[in-house]
Every structure is written in structure tokens, then in C-alpha cells.
Design a protein around this nucleic acid. Structure first.
Length: 118
DNA sequence: CCGTTGACGTCGG
DNA sequence: ACCGACGCCAACG
């Protein structure tokens, strides 16, 4: 095990793992949360590798609510999302803005702010 | 190390 | 709304 992947990759996997059921995140958002706002494509490359089911890769979708890809098994991706309550019409996610999940700020998030007052 | 590939994103026609 | 061109980044050969 032992971290075969680069820091960025493991960060991406970390983020995807945190996506709650019934919610979705775009490749771009995941990339940004992982520290590479311009690495949306790289996230796709990583997802493709995602052989482990520990990562809900089906919750990662395209920008604007596009379905994105799934190794040619888009039907499966649709079914999985649908099973979580996400309505998919054609290659588009309905109420995308409401379904979209954004990772909390601060990356891995630090505990609360010791002095959180603005 | 370099060139190619690809589950992306944004803009223009 | 659909298609094409560019850009960006990591993985693969």
C-alpha cells in the first residue's frame, strides 16, 4: 500500500472519498479541493485508475452537471447515482446546483479556529 | 526524458 | 444546443 501515488493523487482520492451519498462533485471542484484548480483533466486520469471501491468515483461528474465518463459504462454510473437519489436526465444531472457538493475550505480542514471570530 | 493519451474545462462558431 | 480548438495536468510507453 504504501502510497504508490503522488501527493496530489492521494489528495484527490481523499476528497472523492469525502463526497456524501446523494451528492456530486465536478472534476474541477475535486481538483481545486486537492490543490490543483487547473488539474481537472488529471483528476479524470486518476479516476480512470480508481480500481478501489473505497472511492465513490461515480459521484464525480462533469462541469455544469454533465455526466462525464465512466470507462464506457455510463449506464452503471447513472444507476449508481440514481440509487442515491440523484436524478439524471440524459447526460445531465437535474437540480445540479442543489446536488453539487463542495469540499470544505482549508483542504483537510483544521479543527475549528482557535480564534474564530473574524 | 520525451511524446502521446485522456472519466476535463472554457471559449468561439 | 452541438461541434471544434486550446489549454492544463498526471499517467503510460
Amino acid at each position: 500500500m504504501t502510497t504508490l501515488a503522488s501527493p496530489f493523487t492521494r489528495r484527490v482520492l481523499s476528497v472523492v472519498r469525502r463526497i456524501p451519498p446523494g451528492r456530486v462533485a465536478t472534476y474541477g471542484d475535486v481538483a481545486a479541493a486537492a490543490g490543483g484548480p487547473r488539474a481537472a483533466r488529471a483528476v479524470g486520469t486518476i479516476m480512470r485508475q480508481c480500481g478501489s471501491h473505497d472511492v465513490p468515483c461515480h459521484r464525480v461528474v462533469g462541469a455544469g452537471g454533465a455526466l462525464g465518463g465512466y470507462g464506457g459504462n455510463l449506464e452503471l454510473k447513472r444507476a449508481l447515482l440514481r440509487a442515491e437519489g440523484v436524478v439524471v436526465a440524459g447526460s445531465r444531472i437535474r437540480e445540479f446546483a442543489e446536488r453539487q457538493w463542495l469540499a470544505p475550505r482549508g483542504g483537510t480542514a483544521r479543527r475549528q479556529n482557535p480564534l474564530s471570530q473574524r
